[in-house]
Simulated assay, not measured.
Amino acid sequence: MVKIKEIIVVEGRDDTVAIQRAVEADTIETNGSAINEETLERIKLAKEKRGVIIFTDPDFPGEKIRKTIAEHVPGCKHAFLPKEEARSKKGRGVGVEYASVAAIRQALQHVYEETLELKEEITFDDLVTAGLIGGALAKARRQRLGQLLKIGYTNGKQLHKRLQMFQISKEAFCTALEQVLQEEKQHE
């Protein structure tokens, strides 16, 4: 079993169980989106000692937790799980706890390190021109682009920020966008 050096931040106990089925790792549980100061201090200490990977559910509360941690503990690493890989068998819930061992391992193999010095290689105008902001297909395109780049689903503003934060190259962006557009054509 693969051993992860960093401590993985998850939302709850079920997420810890799912992570430990997939890899050998220690976790910190936030116990929901109301993260207290004590938990943030534990995450800060973990980042200083071993590094931290934020691995929250691909939903609104999970994104809120990710954002809160990133604000208070800059420089963390991030792992993202596509929503379709995190659905419960009954289709009612979305979370890390529902993901397969393979999906969790895949997400942890494509971890992004947050960059504190943001360089704008891909502009907001580039996103508008690519049809990722505004228009009937923008949401679906962003969703697929997020899967291909392994940065999760975002709205337009978040996409711009994540592309900068994780220093996605213009080349990687264009390659993924080209694939999104080709897939669109095949489904017409």
Rank of each mutant, 00 (worst) to 15 (best):
K77N: 07
A79V: 01
F80S: 07
L81H: 01
K83S: 12
E85D: 15
E85M: 13
K89T: 14
K90W: 02
G91E: 02
A99E: 08
A99N: 08
A99S: 13
S100E: 06
S100D: 10
V101H: 02
A102R: 11
A103R: 04
A103H: 04
I104R: 04
R105C: 08
L108M: 04
Q109E: 12
V111C: 01
E113K: 13
E117N: 15
E120D: 11
E121K: 15
E121A: 13
I122Q: 10
F124C: 05
F124H: 12
V128W: 10
V128Y: 09
T129H: 14
A130F: 03
A130E: 07
G131E: 08
G131Y: 04
I133N: 05
G134D: 06
G134S: 10
G134C: 03
G134N: 04
G135L: 04
A136G: 10
A136Y: 13
L137N: 11
A138L: 02
A138T: 03
A138R: 00
K139H: 07
R141S: 05
Q143K: 15
R144M: 05
R144I: 00
G146P: 07
L148D: 08
L148V: 01
I151K: 05
I151W: 02
Y153P: 02
T154N: 10
T154F: 04
T154R: 10
N155M: 02
G156L: 05
Q158E: 15
Q158S: 10
H160Q: 12
R162M: 03
R162H: 10
R162G: 03
R162P: 06
Q164K: 14
Q164V: 09
F166Q: 03
I168M: 08
I168C: 06
C174A: 15
T175V: 13
T175P: 03
A176V: 01
L181R: 04
L181F: 03
L181H: 00
L181T: 01
Q182G: 01
Q182L: 12
Q182E: 15
E183V: 01
E184Q: 02
K185F: 00
